[in-house]
Design a protein around this nucleic acid. Structure first.
Length: 207
DNA sequence: ATCCCGAGGG
DNA sequence: CCCTCTGGAT
């Protein structure tokens, strides 16, 4: 049973009109700051991350500074974000690797990024995209869910989803696609009670 | 009560 | 595939 699927182009246009300023709301764009901020953003909002990062980056300016930081010291800064023990541990180990293996600079290759503690494919793609200007699709739960519902893909595996979506969409659109789908997934095509009545692309959606 | 723009581990 | 990790917003 092939599911009905509308080519992405038109849908992306509609979403672009609906969410014209969907964009990464993390404040920092230099690689180290964005990497740390993205690790911190797991399971909490960007607004909450943006609230602690100014003080955090005033205290720890380099990967070496983070690597040297004390576990409990770092935890205090990020306590309000949740998962603070793992996040602190990840950031310290991650920055130690950046110092040891990359001369203190955040690596700019996926292969190297995903080896860093606390950095998965999603985080790596955010950094590649927003800090290094590389076209990428960061597959989070929203991208995965909305893409499946629209019938563009049929898999729950993020890596498969990433490559299948890349086949479907011109590279130029990859970053916009990511942000639009995340926005759409948050505000309309939610996991539990999707607001299909108000959905701008409901006509094109087999879900 | 319930949910959240993940990653690591069993 | 399942589980855990956490505080805060709603």
């Amino acid at each position: 049973m092939p599911m009905k699927k509308t080519p992405p182009g038109k849908i992306l246009q509609i979403l672009e009109r609906t969410y014209p300023d969907a964009k990464c709301t993390l404040v920092y764009r230099n690689p180290l700051h964005l990497l740390v901020a993205t690790i911190l953003s797991a399971q909490c909002t960007d607004e909450r991350v943006n609230k602690v990062t100014p003080g955090l980056f005033r205290k720890y300016r380099t990967a070496e500074a983070f690597a040297r930081s004390g576990q409990s010291e770092l935890e205090k800064h990020i306590h309000s974000l949740g998962f603070y023990r793992q996040k602190a541990k990840s950031i310290r180990a991650c920055c130690q690797s950046i110092v040891d293996d990359h001369g203190g600079d955040v690596p700019d290759r996926m292969e190297d990024l995903v080896k860093l503690a606390g950095v998965g494919r999603k985080t790596a793609n955010v950094v590649l995209n927003e800090a290094f200007g590389e076209a990428a699709i960061a597959v989070d739960t929203h991208v995965l869910r909305t893409s499946n519902r629209l019938g563009w893909i049929n898999t729950r595996e993020p890596v498969k989803a990433e490559f299948q979506i890349m086949e479907l969409i011109p590279e130029k659109w990859w970053p916009r696609f990511t942000m639009l789908m995340i926005f759409h997934g948050r505000n309309c095509c939610t996991a539990r009670n999707p607001n299909c009545a108000a959905c701008p692309v409901a006509r094109h959606c087999p879900y």
